[in-house]
């Protein structure tokens, strides 16, 4: 037997730190610091909630999509978002919480979701702007998470990123079709981009100077790049795409900066983000209300299915094939 005088806690902490430093993935049953566990639960849950709440602004147009092809694409996309929410809740559950608890926290407003989904989708072109800008920003945030130090989160993100790639393209395609269509369609596309541009930039979170959790998350290998770095990458990627669309981005200060080799952009109105996070966005109440109603109105369905399962527990094992 090995004799070790250091207290267990310290030894475990040292082993954990070494694993993170060596880029070895942490798995559910490994010892982990309580702060790491709590940070992950909060972040993964918030991410899952964003996928689930994010179904609503686009779900808003499923019944009104202007062609059957677009209707099918939109339906498949919103469905993917439900799937992504489930992959993420499933990753969070490996940390010892259950989905019902997390949904309760969402429904009671104790856990947040991405503020971008508190903006309304007023026209069809918003489906394009969400796909192009919102999903584009989300992908920029998510790709580094595929290498997150926590195994289940990283694996969920790999799956999600693979599926997301069609989301951004279909958004771009919608805007491209509109901006090359009738004058009314082009105006609709420009209006959508005008409304979604700034909120998309806010999706990367507060500036590095004001970001409270960033440093620790970086040290833990949960976060790989700072908010400002990712935001800059997004702007650099998006500006040429806007040119290809023939649409303008609503920022008079936006210009190529030779010196830095990046696009410089105007000041973000952080008071708006604060306001929307605090609950004073156009759709905060509506989004939560819809989610809560669906959950509450579904309670009798879930209870009845659970009761059926209890009644038939003895016989149900014979119904499925046995794995071999």
């Amino acid at each position: 037997m090995q004799v070790d005088d250091t207290p267990t806690q310290e030894r475990l902490q040292a082993r954990f730190d070494r694993m993170v430093a060596d880029e070895v993935r942490i798995e559910p049953r490994d010892w982990m610091p309580e702060g790491y566990r709590r940070t992950l639960i909060r972040q993964i849950a918030q991410h899952a909630h964003s996928e689930i709440i994010g179904m609503q602004p686009e779900g808003n147009w499923i019944t009104r999509a202007p062609s059957l092809r677009r209707k099918a694409i939109l339906m498949a996309k919103v469905q993917d978002e439900a799937g992504h929410g489930l992959y993420l809740y499933s990753a969070a559950e490996t940390l010892g919480v259950d989905r019902e608890e997390l949904l309760d926290l969402l429904h009671s407003g104790k856990q947040k979701y991405s503020s971008i989904f508190n903006y309304p989708t007023l026209t069809w072109a918003d489906m394009g702007a969400i796909g192009w800008l919102v999903d584009g920003a989300a992908i920029m945030n998510q790709v580094p998470l595929c290498r997150c130090s926590y195994g289940p989160y990283g694996r969920a993100m790999v799956r999600i990123c693979k599926e997301e790639s069609f989301h951004q393209r279909q958004g771009f395609e919608i805007l491209h079709t509109l901006s090359h269509g009738t004058p009314a369609q082009k105006a609709m596309a420009q209006d959508a981009v005008d409304r979604f541009w700034w909120p998309s930039l806010m999706m990367f979170g507060p500036p590095d100077s004001a970001s409270t959790h960033s440093e620790r998350s970086m040290a833990w290998g949960i976060k790989r790049f700072s908010n400002d770095e990712l935001r800059q990458r997004f702007v650099d990627m998006t500006v040429p795409q806007a040119e290809a669309l023939g649409l303008t981005l609503p920022d008079p200060d936006l210009r190529w900066d030779e010196e830095s080799g990046h696009y410089a952009f105007g000041e973000i109105d952080w008071s708006e983000l604060d306001r929307v996070i605090r609950g004073d966005g156009p759709c905060n109440a509506q989004r939560i209300e819809r989610r809560r109603t669906a959950h509450e109105e579904g309670a009798w369905v879930r209870e009845s299915a659970a009761a059926y399962a209890r009644k038939h527990a003895a016989t149900s094992s014979a119904a499925g094939e046995t794995a071999a």
Partner: peptide
């Protein structure tokens, strides 16, 4: 399609979406 975001469980949002997509494909 009206059910999506309103189903009793998120798994069911996906199931109803799948059925709707199949039917939409047949309609087309």
């Amino acid at each position: 399609g009206e059910w999506i975001t309103r189903a009793p469980q998120i798994e069911e949002d996906i199931a109803l979406g799948n059925i709707a997509l199949d039917l939409l494909g047949q309609a087309r």
